[in-house]
C-alpha cells in the first residue's frame, strides 16, 4: 500500500476520533452545565411538545433567521439544504448495497452542490459588502467559507469535469469503515477534496461549527414557558435554600 494511502487512512481515523470525541465532549459539557433560571424568549411554547415543534422549525426552516434577515436566510438556507443533500448523497460510498432513498436523491446532488456554492458565495459576499458584517468578521469567518467552497468546488470538479475512479474510491471508503484497507485512487481533485473534508472534521469541535450542537442546547429556545407551575432549580442554587431553612 502506498504512503499516500496510509497517510489518508491515518488522517481519517484521527479526524473521525476528533470529530466524534470532540462533539461528544461538547455535548457533555453543555448538558452538564446547569440552566438555573427559566429564560425562554417569549412568547414561548407552554408544553414540551410545543418546544419540540419550535426547535423543529428552527432547525428545518431557520425560523428566527427568517424573521430577522431575508438575505442571510436565502443564502444560509441554500447552503445548508444543499449541504444536507450532498452529505446524504455521500452515504452511498459507505454502504453496499445502497439504501433505496439514497439512490433516489442521487440526481438532486448536482443541483444541491450548486445551491451550496451559491449560498456560500452569497454569505461570503456579505462579509465584504455589508459594513456591519465586515466589522464583525474575523479571519476564521472568511477561512471557513473558503474551506467549504473549496470542498464544494473540488467535489464538483469530480462530478462535472474529471471523473474519479468511483469503484476504487468506494472500495477505499468501505475499507475504512470495515477496517479492511484498500488503496486510494491518487487523483488531484480527490486528494484535495478528501484532505479538506478531514480538516473540516478536525476543526468542527473547536470552531463556530459548534452552532450545530449549540442550537439544541440554547435555553432561550429549548425551555418550556412554565415557571409559575414548575420550580426550576439548579443544584448549586438549591443549596442556597438549605441555608435559609
Amino acid at each position: 500500500m502506498s504512503a499516500l494511502t496510509v497517510f489518508y487512512i491515518g488522517l481519517y481515523y484521527v479526524a473521525a476520533i476528533i470529530l466524534i470525541g470532540g462533539l461528544a465532549y461538547r455535548v457533555y459539557e453543555y448538558a452538564s452545565t446547569p440552566a438555573p433560571l427559566n429564560i425562554p424568549t417569549t412568547p414561548a411554547p407552554i408544553t414540551k411538545l410545543g418546544v419540540r415543534f419550535r426547535m423543529f422549525r428552527e432547525i428545518a426552516f431557520f425560523e428566527s433567521l427568517f424573521k430577522s434577515n431575508k438575505w442571510i436566510w436565502v443564502f444560509g438556507y441554500l447552503f445548508h439544504v444543499g449541504l444536507a443533500l450532498v452529505l446524504l448523497r455521500h452515504i452511498r460510498y459507505f454502504q453496499e448495497p445502497v439504501w433505496f432513498w439514497v439512490e433516489l436523491i442521487q440526481p438532486f446532488g448536482m443541483y444541491a452542490s450548486l445551491a451550496m456554492i451559491a449560498g456560500l458565495a452569497g454569505l461570503w459576499a456579505r462579509r465584504f459588502l455589508v459594513d456591519r458584517v465586515r466589522y464583525i468578521s474575523t479571519p476564521s469567518d472568511h477561512l471557513i467559507l473558503v474551506l467549504l467552497i473549496a470542498i464544494g468546488l473540488s467535489g464538483m470538479t469530480m462530478t462535472f469535469v474529471a471523473h474519479t475512479d468511483i469503484i476504487a474510491l468506494k472500495t477505499f471508503a468501505l475499507g475504512l469503515v470495515t477496517f479492511d484497507w484498500h488503496p486510494l485512487p491518487s487523483d488531484g481533485p480527490l486528494l484535495v477534496h478528501l484532505f479538506l473534508v478531514a480538516l473540516l472534521m478536525i476543526i468542527f469541535p473547536i470552531s463556530k461549527l459548534l452552532h450545530v450542537p449549540g442550537v439544541f442546547f440554547s435555553p432561550t429556545r429549548n425551555q418550556v414557558d412554565n415557571p409559575r407551575e414548575r420550580r426550576h432549580l439548579a443544584p448549586w442554587a438549591a443549596a442556597l435554600d438549605k441555608d435559609n431553612g
Binding site: L65, I72, I136, K208, G214
Partner: peptide
C-alpha cells in the same frame, strides 16, 4: 456557555 461557542457571526 453555549452562547460563547454558538455564534456564527452571521450578522442577523
Amino acid at each position: 456557555r453555549v452562547f460563547m461557542d454558538a455564534c456564527v457571526h452571521c450578522g442577523a
